[in-house]
Simulated scan of single mutants.
Amino acid sequence: MKLSDVSQLLTNDPGPFATAYADVSRVAEAGDDAVALTARAAHDDLVAAGAPAAVAEALQAALGASTSEGGEVARVVVASERGVGFQALVRGRRPQPSTSWGSLPDLGPWLADATLVTPFVLARVDHEGGSVETYADAAARPERSAEETGGDPNFLHKTGDDNREGSVEEEWKRSADAVAAEVERQVRSGPSLVLVGGEPDAVSELRQKLSHLDAEVVELQGGRRNADGGDAAFAEEVTEALRGQAVTAGLHVLEELKQRLGERAQGKSSRAASGVDEVLEALVRGQVDTLLIDPAEAAGTSVTPADQPGLSIGAVTTLDALPADQVLVALAALTDADVRVAHRGTLDGQPVAAVLRWDNTSEPEAPSASR
C-alpha cells in the first residue's frame, strides 16, 4: 500500500510523535464505554512514556471519536505537538492495542493489518437497483458512494401471473444496467477489484454486464436487503474476500522477489535488495518499488541517521538511534514506495527486502528520500 498521507506528515512535522493503534468497534452494547476506556489507556501509556499531556489528550480524543461505522473496526492515530497529523481506519478487530512515543511514527502494528486489504469497489444489486461504493486501502468508510434505482420497488405487487416471470426478469436487467454503469464509473478511479453481492439473479445479470471490465469481479454469497444478520455476515464475507485477494497479491510479489534474488546469486543483473543495510541504501537513493518488511523483526535493529550518508527523513532531524522498522517505513512513504508486511522466513531470512525500480548496475537519477 502507498503511504502518501504519512509522507505529508513527515515532510511537514519534525515530531516527536505519539502513535496508537487499537480496536474501536462499537458492536457490543457497551461499545462506547469500551472505546472510551481504550482511548484513556492509550493516553495514560503515552504520558508514562514521556509524551506531553496535550499530545496524549489530542490522540485520546481522535482515537475515541465515533467512526460512524458498523461492524468491527480499528483505528491508528499519530499526533505531535502540532496536533493529530494522521489517522486511518481498518476493517476488522485489533485485539491488542499498541502505543508508542518517539522520533518517528510506529506504524508496524497498523501496517500488519492494513496491507491485507486492497482498494476495491463493492456493488450490491437486486430488483430495486443497488448501491456502489469505492473503498481505499484498508478503509472502513467508502471514498465514493452511489445509490442506483434502475428497478421497480413495487414490481412484486403487479397483477397478471402470466407476465410475472417476464416482469421479474426485466427488473433484474434494469437494476443490473444501472449498477453496472456506476461500477464502470468508479473502477475508472483506480480499483481493479470488484466485489458483487445481492439477489442471485440480479448478481448474475450484473456479472455478465461487467464481463468486459478491466478488473477482477468476485461474486459474494450475501448482500441481500433486510436479511437477518445480513449486514454483519456480509461485512465478514467482504473482509475474507479482501484478505484472500491481498494474500494472492502478496504471493506474487514474494515470487518476484525470490526470482530477482536468485538472479543476483547467479551474478546476473538484479533489481532486488535484502537486509536492513542494503534496503536502507536503496531507499535513500529512491530506488525501492516495493518494500517487504517484518516490522517486529526489523525493530530489533537500530539505524543512526548521522551514520547513513544522504539519509534524510523529511522534517525529522534527530541524530539518535532509531528502530529500523520505523526508519524504513518512513523512507518508503517519502519515496512513494509500496509497502507490504511479510514474515522473515519469506524474505530470504532477513527482516526486510525490496523489489527495486531499476538495476543496481544502471542508475538513473534517483528521487531524494527527503522530498
Rank of each mutant, 00 (worst) to 15 (best):
R94E: 14
D45V: 03
G50C: 02
P97I: 05
V77N: 05
T19H: 05
G83K: 10
A36P: 00
V84R: 12
A34H: 09
T67S: 14
G83D: 11
S80T: 01
S103T: 06
Q87Y: 05
A34P: 00
S66L: 11
D13F: 01
T38A: 08
A48N: 02
A51C: 11
D33P: 01
D44V: 09
S25D: 00
A30L: 09
A65C: 09
G102P: 07
S68M: 15
S4E: 07
H43I: 00
Y21W: 06
D13H: 01
V78H: 05
D23T: 06
G83S: 13
F86M: 04
A30D: 15
S68K: 15
D44M: 08
V24W: 01
G83P: 05
Q8G: 06
Q8A: 15
A36T: 04
V6R: 13
S25V: 04
G50R: 12
V35M: 09
R75D: 00
A79I: 00
E57Q: 15
L10G: 02
R94D: 02
A65K: 05
T99H: 06
Q60W: 01
L37K: 15
L10Q: 03
A41E: 12
V77Y: 00
A58T: 06
Q60S: 13
S103C: 12
R94M: 10
S66Q: 11
F17H: 07
A51H: 02
L10A: 14
T99W: 00
G31F: 02
A39R: 11
G71M: 02
A56G: 04
P95C: 07
D23A: 14
L3A: 05
R93I: 13
D32F: 06
G64I: 01
A79S: 08
W101Y: 12
A42K: 10
G15Q: 11
S7E: 08
L63D: 01
F17C: 08
S98D: 06
W101C: 07
A48I: 10
T38D: 06
V78M: 02
G92M: 08
V27A: 15
A58W: 01
R40K: 14
A20T: 03
S68I: 09
G92K: 04
A79L: 00
G92S: 03
A79Y: 03
G70I: 07
T67Q: 14
R82I: 08
A20H: 03
G85S: 09
E29I: 14
R91F: 07
V6Y: 04
H43E: 11
A48C: 11
L89E: 01
V47H: 02
V76G: 03
R91S: 09
G70C: 06
P16Y: 04
V84K: 12
